[in-house]
């Protein structure tokens, strides 16, 4: 039995669970699938217990491994004996024919590079290996393109991606722009990425409502809570304000000549005032526009809305206080 490698045992398990019509119980799996510790006849109680424990451990690991590969390994409860668990692999698990070319493989390799050094790198590599399986062997072209992810939010994405697909509740500390930092417990429904800002959309269990979280504002690590398959994900992800064609707030920003080029490019010129150019700028997050104006070192000031102008001034005053002691 020890000659059977873990990989072979998992292959055997996958084949056995795909073939079964109804389900296989743990004892059936142990007896039929080659590679598990069986009890030799005439074993002492102690040997028997050790073999049992070893089987349970191996099976748990194999089950997790197959699930993490994306194989839908379901737990089937017997309608009569509720605590008698069985297992089956459901549905069509096979990768469909995608007919990808070597050029496509090179494009996919860029997607793997994007996550270099981040927790999603391993997942990207596995996915890449699956997708290129059936491409005829040859030299992939080297493409003059690349990418990488450096944000802190990228660390949370790996945990959240798993939690979204496993439908497992997550918990994390979150610094909202409008309310104090506190721990959130969320049913994660989906991840939204846009131009370097990543979001989680889900059901906030304590608030009893749909919420959108900016991953950059998640503090420390994200932990999963409870069992997988704990909730249903909606077929359409509610994007709230995220999916609107253009950002929903408008500010008027006065920009000094020869300054604020990025604002000038993005905004729409609406006039001039005392030698400053006025631009109408659309935005989604007030704190990001405020940070942009603050970073211009006096090269810009907010004209409208008044709250944004006041908060720019308040930030500058607070900075001066700390800087001067």
């Amino acid at each position: 039995m020890s000659e059977v490698s873990a990989e072979q045992r998992r292959l055997n398990l996958m084949i056995a669970l795909s073939r079964t019509r109804h389900r296989l119980t743990r004892e059936q799996i142990r007896a039929r699938v080659e590679g598990y510790d069986t009890v030799t006849p005439g074993a002492s109680d102690e040997e028997r217990q050790r073999a049992d424990a070893s089987f349970q451990r191996m099976f748990e690991r194999d089950k997790d491994e197959l699930r993490s590969m994306g194989i839908p390994l379901r737990t089937i409860t017997d309608p009569v004996h509720q605590d008698d668990l069985g297992y089956r692999i459901d549905g069509d698990t096979a990768m469909p024919a995608l007919d990808l070319s070597l050029q496509d493989a090179a494009v996919l390799a860029l997607a793997v590079d994007y996550w270099a050094g981040k927790p999603l790198e391993a997942d990207a590599r596995h996915g890449f290996a699956k997708l290129i399986s059936a491409i005829a062997h040859g030299e992939s072209p080297a493409l003059p393109f690349g990418g990488m992810s450096t944000t802190a939010g990228a660390d949370a994405i790996a945990v959240l991606a798993a939690a979204v697909s496993d439908r497992q509740v997550v918990r994390f500390e979150y610094a909202s722009a409008s309310s104090p930092t506190r721990r959130r417990t969320v049913q994660p429904w989906g991840i939204v990425m846009r131009a370097g800002l990543d979001y989680l959309v889900g059901w906030d269990v304590d608030a009893d409502a749909v919420r959108t979280f900016r991953l950059g504002r998640v503090q420390g690590s994200v932990r999963t809570v409870g069992e997988p398959e704990a909730f249903e994900r909606p077929a359409t992800l509610p994007l709230g304000g995220l999916d609107e064609e253009s950002p929903d707030h408008v500010a008027v920003v006065a920009v000094r000549p020869e300054a604020g080029h990025a604002l000038r490019r993005r905004g729409e010129r609406v006039g001039a005032e005392d030698g400053w150019d006025l631009f109408r700028v659309r935005y989604r997050h007030a704190d990001l526009v405020r940070a942009e104006v603050l970073a211009l070192h006096g090269g810009a000031r907010v004209v409208e809305p008044a709250e944004l102008a006041a908060s720019v001034a308040a930030h500058a005053r607070a900075a001066r206080e700390v800087a001067r002691g």
Binding site: T93, A94, A106, L120, G127, K130, G146, S149, S165, I191
Partner: peptide, 27 residues
């Protein structure tokens, strides 16, 4: 045969590709 992408694999690959496309840096 080869199995379909897992949720994490799909997030990693589609997320990165769509990001490259949106940034204007995709082949």
């Amino acid at each position: 045969s080869q199995v379909r992408l897992s949720g994490q694999e799909a997030v990693a690959l589609t997320g990165a590709l769509a990001t490259l496309i949106d940034a204007g840096t995709a082949p």
